[in-house]
Design a protein around this nucleic acid. Sequence first.
DNA 1: CTGAAAGCGCTTACAG
DNA 2: CTGAAAGCGCTTACAG
Lengths: 356, 356
Amino acid sequence: MSVTRVTIKDVARSAGVSIATVSNVLNGTGRVSADTVRTVRRAIQELKYSPSQAARNLKDKKSRLIAVIVPLLHKGFLHDNPFYWQLVGGIEEGARAHRLHIMLVGADSEESYSFVKERHLDGLIVIGAFEGSEALERIVQWGVPSVFVDSYLADPNVYQILSDDEKGGYLGTKHLIDLGHRNIALLTGEIEPNGVHEARFLGYRRALKEAGIGYRPAWAVEEPPTMEGGARSVPRILALQGVSAVFATSDVAAMGLLSGLSERGLSVPRDLSVAGFDDLPYSRFATPPLTTVAQDIGLKGREAVRLLQAHMDNKEPPYRRKLIPVELKARQSTRFLEEGEGEPVDANEIRKGGDG
Amino acid sequence: MSVTRVTIKDVARSAGVSIATVSNVLNGTGRVSADTVRTVRRAIQELKYSPSQAARNLKDKKSRLIAVIVPLLHKGFLHDNPFYWQLVGGIEEGARAHRLHIMLVGADSEESYSFVKERHLDGLIVIGAFEGSEALERIVQWGVPSVFVDSYLADPNVYQILSDDEKGGYLGTKHLIDLGHRNIALLTGEIEPNGVHEARFLGYRRALKEAGIGYRPAWAVEEPPTMEGGARSVPRILALQGVSAVFATSDVAAMGLLSGLSERGLSVPRDLSVAGFDDLPYSRFATPPLTTVAQDIGLKGREAVRLLQAHMDNKEPPYRRKLIPVELKARQSTRFLEEGEGEPVDANEIRKGGDG
DNA sequence: CTGAAAGCGCTTACAG
DNA sequence: CTGAAAGCGCTTACAG
């Protein structure tokens, strides 16, 4: 039970050298004769010694530990969007490659972040922070190396990894327009200034404008980017006269929508075309397989670590803000709108339909 | 950039006391006059001091850091089952309640776990370990407080959190039997001795036996518990003469199956009843909403932390092995089999069917 | 090439 | 009630 730790002293004694020498062979520092190196190495092997990070931290003020800050949806609960798991998976992978460990912390707006100093964390990856939040201020002010993912911060000095959200919004909408749709609803998370959803919303508007389609505010339906939110949006969407397609700014919302529509006996894409955003592993297994704007979430995580590492090394990286490319994946949840199918869905008519 | 750290010395100087006194008020140890406490507290506030965990670790050999070990599916990639995100979410929540931080590490069979000693980790939560694995031996041997989740280890001294998998297997199968099905396939992950899937498999067999239905080995279809695995199982399932229902030992496999069936123009539950296991947040939004054996995954995570904390405190907890209850959630992916519907699915007939 | 010593920031007996 | 000192396990100048 009580782990009698093997320390550098034990190794020194066993090898018949000083602890400074052991430290030197451990770190490849100083000048040490090949013979001594060998002896020390052997002692290390025999004693199964591995140096205490805790002691090193104290000396170096380096922990080789970074924190990954994930937003808490409601108090005490990690956001249940599998997107985060994908992203954290990518970060974990990147961290492993850089010989870093990650501390996962779910944080709400009241988080003090005192652990950053207390644990001598080398860096931070913050997911979905918002401009002007107190926490953010604090972090930037401390000067702890940080990378913000999906955060849209105006400060040009801040390191950021984002998806090309505006383009994604454009591509998704354009795809529907190309299929002949003109009455396209947007199902989006709250459009906060400088947020991910705003960027996607802007892409939606650009595609609309380019096609000469007027933008109607009521057609941007805001619901939480969750399956519940998507399911709940159904009545609001069906209330839109003539709607033939919906572009959702997240796959989870799109899937909730799929579910809500199916519950009402509506068929996708027959009655309504639906496109999403993210390309979660799920999405191609949805019924029907979901057309979506794909981003490489794992890559996003790995890039975040890469950027952070450069920052921690004080190497000026080639960029401060990196955009992860997006691409449209057309699957079976969207369809070509035939001539004269202007208003395929009539909410009243639907209510008479089957109940699944 | 260079963070000049505020140390206990600064506080001591500012408060006009010794560092020992500061330490005592910090930890509520020793005897300190109310006056002194006040002075010191004020100095702490003013200087925004927070003690260095790194230094504490070195003294105490306590880090208030636990590792969560998640299996790597293929080299370098965290298992993409959202189940893990749910579980880790529960663990994070529990850890926060116990003022612990969690280090997330994806580990394959070659992991040395040297970080456990190096970082003075207080404890480990290991997900999905297998009996006899080297890593496991090492961990148990070191005596680092550990809790194993979903691992089925024979050693009665090991702390474990499991779902009541055998019962879940029984309940899922029984549900199908109660609906009139007799030709029930099992879609399962590899049945390894003492594994989660084996327990569910055993429950399946118990229900069969109880109903006087013979067990046919070919009807236990093994595929990886992933959406891909579920989708891929379709031909094997359809080859089973007279199959009218499938019980999948994971929701992800069930959803892959749903997808694969839909692709072939088969309808669930009309052509085939499908039940899953886990009750992922997604499952009730599947098309059709998935009947499944529910377990409270978040609770599982929180319980793991609770057990670990008891273990770390050397308090003998009320149990070493805790079973999380399971319960059947009947939704729309399973249906009552009418009289004379003995063999509703004929593989050959299906192939002629619509293609969606 | 090698070692003695200081110091990282704490906590913990031990005196007083 | 309070403080001086040792020590946790390392690394890093600095001598030699």
